[in-house]
Structures are given as C-alpha cells and as structure tokens.
Design a protein around this nucleic acid. Structure first.
Lengths: 337, 337
DNA sequence: TTGAAAGCGTTACCAA
DNA sequence: TTGGTAACGCTTTCAA
C-alpha cells in the first residue's frame, strides 16, 4: 500500500553510487577479474544498499547466452513413477543453478509440440523430454534448435541427441521368464494405453516373448484408457477374471495396478499365487504395506531423473557425455508369483 | 552433423525479405493492427520460409514486459497430494500460454529463498508458493518484486498478495467431531513433521479441539520425519499400538498413511472400526481398493491447483481477483470409523 | 585496474 | 497502413 512501484534499480545506478563505471560494476557482479578488492567492496555495498537485482533477461539478451531454464516434459503426474522421475530431475537441476520449466503433456503429442515451440523461444539451456514419440514437427523443432536434448525413459539407441532410459523390453522379458519358471502357463496382461507409447508396450512385448519362449500362452490383455493406478488394476482384474477362465497369472503395467489386482483377489478369497499369480513393475511404495510382498522389478526412478539432469548439464557445459545412458532394473522376487 | 550452427534468423531479415520494415513485420507477428492483409501474408510467408523464431528474450527486454514464466514451489512430489496440485496448476497455466518454473523444496525454507531470488531475476509473470512459512528474506524478496504472488495450500486470511487454500483447521475439526459422535473417546494422531508447517498441524489442532469438545482425549501422537506415505502409516501404527494401550481410533495425516494403518490392522487381525477406528484425509486413489471404504475428507486437489493458476493469471492480466479463495472439502463417511 | 562506445533483437513512439 | 529512430540494461570489445 505504502510503496509506489519503484523502478527496478539498475546497474548504472549502482555503479554511479559506487563511483565506478558500469563495466567495473558488471565485472564485480560476475565474479570476473580485473578490479581491486576495495572496488569490489564498494560495489557490493551499493548492491546491497540499493537492493539491486540482476536482470538476467538483459544479460541473456546482451551476451547472446541461454537462460538457466531447462524444459522438462512429463506425461502425467498422477503416475507416481513420473512424479519421482521429475523430482529427481528438479533436484539435480536446481542444485546446479538451473530451473525446470515443466510440461505435463497428458500423453498428447500436439501439446508437447506447442510447448516445445514456446519454450524454445526463451532460449532454454536444454530440454528433457519423456518418451521418444515425437511428431515430425517436434522432431524438427528440436533438431533445428541448437540446444541439448535428452530423451528420457525409453532407452533409445539412436537418439536425437542424448538418451537416458531403461531397457523396458528386457525388464519385461526377465519377469516373463520368472513367471514361466514358477510354473505359470496361462497368462494375461493388464495395462493402459498411455505411458508414452514405447515403454509399457516394450515391457509387454518382452514379457510376451518370454512367455512364448517358455511354452506358455498369453490368453488375454486388458488395456485401460486411464492413468495406471490402483483402481484401474482392481477393476480390470475383475473384468478379466469374469471373461477369461483358468488364468494362472497376470502381469501388470506397474505395482499400483498390481496392488489393485491383489486387493481384488483378496476380496474374492483367491489365494495368491496359488489361484492367481500377480506381478508388477516399478517397486513402488504401495508394495510395502500389501498383505504379501509383491513380485516386481525395482527401478531407481529418482536416480533416472538425476541421470537425465546430469546428462543435460554436462551437455550444456560442453563436457563429454555418454550419448546413451542405461539405467538398471533389479528383480524383486516377492511372494505373489 | 551436416549443418553448421546457422545464426538464428532475425526479424530484420524477415522484414527485408518481405520488403517491409521491421516494425511492420513486428506488428504482423504480434497480431496487432495496422497492416494490410497482403502485407500480412507476405510477412508470414517469409516467416515460414526462413524458419523465423521469435526471440522472446529480446521482446521481454525491449518491451519491459515480463516473461511467460510462473514460478511454482511445491514441497515434495513424493507426496501424491502435491503432485496433483502441481498438475492442476500446470495444466491451467499451460493452456493460457504460461509455463511453470518448478521448485521442489523438500520443505527447506532456505532453498525456497534462493530459488525465489533466482527466478525473480528472470522477470517471472507471477509466483505460486506452497505454504506460508516464508523466511524474512523470502518475504522481503516477494514484496519488493513487483509480481503477483499466490500463497497456496493453507488458507491465509491476510496474505502477502493472494491466497488459495483449504481451511485445514475446520477439516480437522469436522473429522474429530464425527469420530466422537461415533463413540470413540481415546484417540491418537499419526502424521509427519513436514507438510509445510501449518496445514497438517492445523488439521491436527482442529481435530484435537473437536475431541476435547466432545469429551474425548488425545492419548498419543506419532510424528515421523518422512514424507507421509504408506509405509510410514503402517510402521507408526505398529509402534503406537505397542506403546499405547486401549486406543479407540487413530487420525492420520492423509489417506496413504491411513491405508498403511488399515493394512497393519488387517495383518494383526484387528477389526476396524471395532477394535480400532481409522480416519484419513484427502480421499486419495488408494482408498478405492482397500478392504473397507476409508473414512476421510475429500479435497479437490487438482481443482485447488487450477484455482491457484486462475488467481495468478487474473492478477497477471490485471483483472479483479479475490484476495482469498477457499477450497471446499467434503466429508466421506466410509466404514472405518 | 578501469572506462567508453558499440551492439544485442525487439518494440515504443512519433512522424509520414 | 507504414517506417525511422530511440530505447530497453547489460556485456563485449577495445583502448587507456
């Protein structure tokens, strides 16, 4: 109420107050060399006294440099997995002085494209995009922008620029083989349409191959059009068991769906894995409180995000970077298969 | 590999190619008025042909305008509730052409402060900060920056600028009263230290008042130093039941913790609510698959985020805004109290 | 160690 | 409907 909108203090005022030129003040602020200690102290004193705030917009403009923004696109924050990945990214970026500019795409390619276009206009230092299903338009924009890009989540052996991800196919195959080894033969899969095209599908394909290689069959698949969550798993299990008889086991897109399946089984008095085997993916927090330890695949989601941030930061700073970074997964035996 | 880093096409080149002045080209790009349709077509043709990209940095600089960035600070993405809030914010901002610049603070005030300082240097259009426990430093920065600020989550009746939140105290009181009405007397609370100081504490205080007003007592509280999740609820319930006898019911910080408690009770063969009543908060997805419907409080988290975005957008555009926006909660009776 | 002048790409402002 | 010129706040570059 009391203060009228004061014009922002500018460097020239600081310089004048300190009795030096703009350039000297600028050098002090940028921790450069070329000024006496006494000069530095005088300038900094004025900076604090006047409450000077560096105008990074002007800096970026004048010096033709990038911003400290890194665009990060994620499909869905309702999916715990991506929330974790994002947190990993943000922490690492933040501690290096960069800021994440977020896009929650809802798996909509067009909206990612328009976000990419808009964010590129702000001279971002880099971009991290989840998934590799870019449209031609998006791909073109990313290529012509002279900006480091990390494709996250799916391992992409010939990335646009950099890739940090998981070999989803292999993780699916490993689970499928285990399920067969435990004696299951008649199988089904429950998942969702989303999950950025490749990844869940790759897991499914790897898993399917393992089942077939082991002499089992995939009798049914149920694909929801929703985020892969608890209720989806519960509901789809109910549907599936009512339409397909004699299933040995179900492989779920992730642990939250599998938890839904397990709770459904419990509600019907089915014994797991005797009557029905259940396998998840992700080793998510829910598995800690279920009546049985879930058979799943551990993935370090936070670490995945951090690695992505590491890659983009290295590229930004012109340091050498691995083009492709593969994040491990680890089998968690559990009690449900 | 093939293309050497071409200098970015600038407006002057477009203008020249189209045979008009920079100003005319600028007007066309900004959808202003003051040019013939033919001129527009010629300019746009060159824009596409040359692949011109608007340099928003230069725009913001020259026109003294803000960026399209809105700083958003959130304490923790491992907490589903905040992930939902953030998604609500981001969707709304994005569809209005603004971008969220993220800070995941881990409840660390100092890190929020330094983020605020850095993000303000980029002339953000506005800021949305979760919680109202700003440090003096942060408060000062926010005040002197001439930028709209929304304080989110806790309802703050005398906000720095704008507030969008929930009356946590009342929601706690409502639950406490219900628990007493259902005959519970000897109560306990399980929560975490975090949750941005006020909110969970306010719920606890409201709840406690209701218990006391109803003639009950709060026998025990268990406060974890962790994000409020499934396992925390499970573990704390185990600890609490082993140290405090004859509890009628436990009020949890949120549904995920309550789900942990419920699963623990189930694992020990306790009947709910007969042996132990359980109440949660938030109406989170987990409640859909539990063996019993959870007694909880529904909060529209996504909507809360959207309202916050609406407030900041209105303020940015200079439209009239309610200083304080209260988001409703709704009691969900359930079967666990 | 310091400073003066030019320039970054765009829009505001005024003139035609 | 157009265009010229100044201005935005800082850094680069060159000179002292």
């Amino acid at each position: 109420m009391s203060s009228r909108k004061r014009a922002r203090v500018k460097l020239a005022e600081v310089a004048e107050a300190a009795g030096v030129s703009k350039m000297t003040a600028s050098r002090v602020l940028n921790n450069g060399k070329g000024f006496s200690e006494e000069t530095r102290d005088r300038v900094m004193a004025e900076v604090h006294r006047l409450g000077y705030m560096h105008d990074r917009m002007a800096v970026a403009f004048s010096s033709h440099s990038s911003s400290t923004f890194v665009g990060v696109s994620i499909p869905d924050l309702g999916n715990e997995v991506f929330a974790q990945v994002l947190e990993g990214i943000e922490r690492r970026l933040n501690s290096s002085g960069y800021q994440a500019v977020l896009c929650v795409s809802q798996y909509d390619t067009a909206s990612v494209d328009s976000w990419i276009e808009r964010v590129l206009q702000w001279r971002p230092a880099g971009l991290i995009v989840t998934g590799r299903n870019h449209s031609e338009q998006g791909r073109k924009l990313l290529r012509q922008a002279d900006v480091p890009v990390v494709e996250l989540w799916d391992l992409n052996t010939s990335p646009l620029d950099l890739s940090v991800g998981i070999n989803h196919y292999d993780s699916g195959y490993a689970m499928g083989r285990f399920m067969v080894e435990r004696g299951h033969r008649t199988m089904a899969y429950i998942g969702t349409h989303h999950d950025t095209a490749h990844s869940a599908k790759s897991r499914f394909q790897g898993w399917q191959s393992a089942i077939q290689d082991g002499g089992g069959t995939v009798e049914d698949t149920y694909v929801l059009k929703d985020t892969p969550g608890f209720y989806g798993g519960y509901y789809a299990t109910e549907q599936m068991l009512s339409r397909t008889a004699d299933l040995d086991a179900i492989y779920y897109q992730n642990d939250n769906m599998a938890a839904g399946g397990l709770m459904f089984a419990q509600s019907r008095g089915l014994s797991v894995p005797g009557d029905l085997g259940i396998a998840g993916w992700g080793d998510l927090p829910i598995s800690a409180i279920l009546p049985q330890r879930l058979t799943t695949m551990h993935v370090a989601h936070l670490k995945l995000g951090q690695k992505a941030a590491d890659s983009i930061l290295a590229a930004i700073k012109g340091k050498p970077v691995e083009e492709v970074t593969s994040i491990d997964f680890r089998f968690v035996p559990g009690e449900t298969i």
